[in-house]
Design a protein around this nucleic acid. Structure first.
Lengths: 177, 177
DNA sequence: TAATAAACGAACACGATGTTCGGTAACATA
DNA sequence: TATGTTACCGAACATCGTGTTCGTTTATTA
């Protein structure tokens, strides 16, 4: 279809992302986005129903790539957990600026919600690696929560660290003997 | 001062808490609170500047008790981490209904923000208990994040569990040898 | 019972949202 | 190059929630 559509969509994404670097998601108005992207009001609404929809679209965008990549690059079940996580973290590295914008906004919940869903299926495959006395549901929540925490720490406290480094930290902290 | 003030404040808290059990924080309007609490519009605004202020006040309320209790009951530094955490969890048990309302709302961040601040100083006292290769800052984030996750799991997935049980699960999952 | 302080609630100004619609510019096709 | 289609433009509008104002009523205190 129309090249214009993609261009406009990109302009909106880009404006939104820029704005998020300087202010909280909540305080950004549709007008701000329109001005920054230099598009008409009705154009924005013809692309996205609401500001939330835009944020969701951005999150989906990020995760689409990760999931596609995951399927293409590591289809076998024998791949280690650490390898899979490193792989995810590499994708984050590439989209770091967008992710940082989302995570540092007040509503990183939406992004983390997506991440959690995705991680759920992933960790289910590797549950046999762990032997603990806690309920399985507690364990999964723990593993996912800790990974999200690690990503948060990475982005906010030590952005220069490599994906491998973060994966190593993560593994060493969840290891139970 | 005036008994009426406290009564009104209580009515607002109670109405807010009730509303939060049924809908997301974001979707609750000041009008909803006013109607539920059966008070005048200007009365609400004479108590709280905004809806956010109200939420913060509620969080502070919960943590005041915990911190006061902590100072009175466990002043010595020799108390174990598990004992301290259990103590916190017991306070949560008492305020469970309010906490659940906040945690299940879209903006549990504010509550968790308070909790994190409080936990930070607590964990600093017990850092020597842990020996890992990860940076200290990563470790603290990990310990705090995992505790928040445990509280979340407790409230949402297994509300009948005892505070001691949760503390045990937590300890067994963060133990590194 | 008089003075003080709080609650009331209607009315208002303001700002953001999301829609509508007539007009313009870009694209695809023949 | 002409023609039909489709996206973008942007001013205008209705709607809704916010937070304030202020004169009135009701409760508390001394």
């Amino acid at each position: 279809m129309d090249r214009r559509q993609r261009k406009t969509r990109e302009a909106i994404f880009s404006a939104f992302s820029t704005l998020m670097k300087n202010q909280r998601y909540e305080s950004i108005t549709v007008q701000d986005i329109i001005d920054k992207a230099d598009i008409g009001r009705s154009t924005f609404y013809s692309h996205f129903e609401t500001k939330d929809t835009l944020l969701k679209a951005m999150c989906s965008d990020i995760f689409e790539h990760i999931i596609e990549g995951s399927v293409c690059d590591y289809p076998e079940k024998s791949v280690t957990l650490e390898a899979r996580l490193t792989h995810i973290l590499w994708h984050f590295e590439n989209k770091k600026s967008d992710i940082r914008a989302i995570l540092s906004s007040q509503s990183h919940d939406i992004f983390l919600g997506y991440l959690r869903d995705y991680l759920y299926t992933l960790f289910e495959m590797h549950l046999d690696d762990f032997h603990t006395k806690v309920p399985q549901s507690f364990l999964i929540h723990h593993l996912i929560g800790t990974f999200c925490e690690a990503v948060n720490w990475w982005i906010k406290e030590s952005p220069a660290a490599s994906p491998e480094q973060i994966a190593t930290y993560y593994m060493s902290v969840i290891e139970t003997h």
